[in-house]
Design a protein around this nucleic acid. Structure first.
Length: 358
DNA sequence: TCTGGGGTCCTAGGACCC
DNA sequence: TCTGGGGTCCTAGGACCC
């Protein structure tokens, strides 16, 4: 028996859930996002495969999506329903014999297990999820987490794909670095200034060059991504939040100081109830703000002492806003409360956006 | 065509102390 | 008159992920 990492990812998750409860939508272009009104400022959360054929993608503004496919069916995001389905998916994975499950999001997880025939095991996982939820998923198999994660994309939809040390460069070598998990547009651009464009290029890049460009930690980390190397440890320690925040894009820009103060008060009130629910006080306040054309700031301030109080959070956020001395119209406001760590700290850091850490 | 809302982590540099 | 290293705390800002 060999230890494997499986990466399980639901196919078109939000759209699939909506189609399941409205079967007449099957085979049609379905777009889930915002309040389901494509004239509003909001973006696509998930597009069905039929909608993707029109060029609609996650993260795209609904206004653009509706231009690309005026006949698409637009539906609002229904968080409680997806959470319930997600919980069933994750429980199915945990019930799989010998499986250790590390949840990455609503619709994906790493599964660590031992197997002689990992492809057969992956097929069994797919069958179990389909049986429990009626939904399809794809499974990536790897000898590291990075390889398993990347493999899933190659198997979609409803597929299984395996990436190991032996076939990594054969399969991935000619692809652009952006195909890797953890390399986005900006990192790809900076790599290109060193003539690093493909996974082959990155895998061969010396660590000292990458360290000079990206820092002593991040540089070598990016190099390891190119080689598909990294951890194979699937960690099921429950996730503990570091922060909670709320942000809103306003359908009409906010103009006056009063409007902004009021909006910050509303956001801070929601944040207070989120952190109270965990019994954890706020120690630092983050203000996020986007001015009308396109210019986003973040500002941070430590509170004199930890608190739950929405007033203190809102006052601090407003003070940060005033410090910007900018009276342009405001399109987006966000308030985030960074919480006091639990006693003993975060014993098993659970990271989704992590980079570079050992 | 005009950009959501929820998160996490890394890097750099200034201030301050010894 | 000019300036060492090492450490901590803090903020700004960048980047990535789902």
């Amino acid at each position: 028996m060999t230890a494997w990492v499986l990466h399980v990812d639901m196919d078109q998750f939000l759209a699939a859930v909506e189609i399941q409860r409205r079967p007449e939508l099957a085979g049609k272009p379905v777009v889930v996002g915002g309040r389901g009104d494509p004239t509003e400022r909001a973006v696509v959360s998930t597009a069905s495969y039929e909608a993707r054929e029109f060029g609609i993608r996650s993260g795209m503004p609904l206004k653009i999506a509706v231009k690309r496919c005026p006949d698409a069916i637009f539906l609002p995001v229904d968080f409680p329903v997806y959470e319930a389905v997600s919980a069933r998916v994750m429980q199915t994975l945990r019930d799989f014999p010998g499986a250790v499950v590390e949840v990455l999001g609503w619709d994906e997880a790493f599964v660590g297990l031992q197997a002689d025939d990992p492809v057969a095991t992956a097929r069994a996982v797919q069958a179990a999820v389909l049986d429990a939820t009626g939904l399809d998923c794809s499974v990536g198999i790897g000898d590291t987490k990075v390889r398993a994660k990347v493999a899933t994309d190659l198997g979609k939809p409803r597929g299984v794909f395996q990436l190991t040390r032996d076939n990594w460069l054969d399969v991935m070598g000619e692809r652009p670095v952006k195909a890797l998990w953890g390399i986005g547009t900006q990192t790809a651009k900076r790599l290109e200034t060193h003539d690093i464009r493909t996974v082959n290029d990155l895998a061969a890049a010396p660590d000292d060059l990458l360290a000079a460009e990206f820092g002593p930690n991040t540089g070598p980390h990016i190099g390891r991504l190119g080689r598909g190397a990294g951890s194979a440890v699937v960690d099921d320690t429950p996730w503990v939040a570091r922060a909670h925040g709320r942000e809103t894009t306003y359908q009409q820009d906010l103009v006056t100081q009063d409007e902004i103060r009021t909006a910050l008060g509303e956001l801070a009130t929601q944040v207070e109830s989120d952190i109270r629910a965990e019994g954890r006080q706020c120690q630092r306040v983050h203000l996020k703000i986007r001015f009308a054309p396109f210019f986003t700031f973040t500002r941070v301030r430590k509170l004199p002492e930890p608190t739950f109080a929405a007033e203190a959070i809102a006052d601090t956020a407003f003070a940060l806003y005033r410090g910007l001395s900018d009276d342009r119209p405001v399109r987006l406001l966000g308030v985030r409360a960074e919480m006091v760590p639990p006693p003993g700290g975060y014993d098993a850091p659970r990271t989704h956006g992590r980079r570079g850490a050992p």
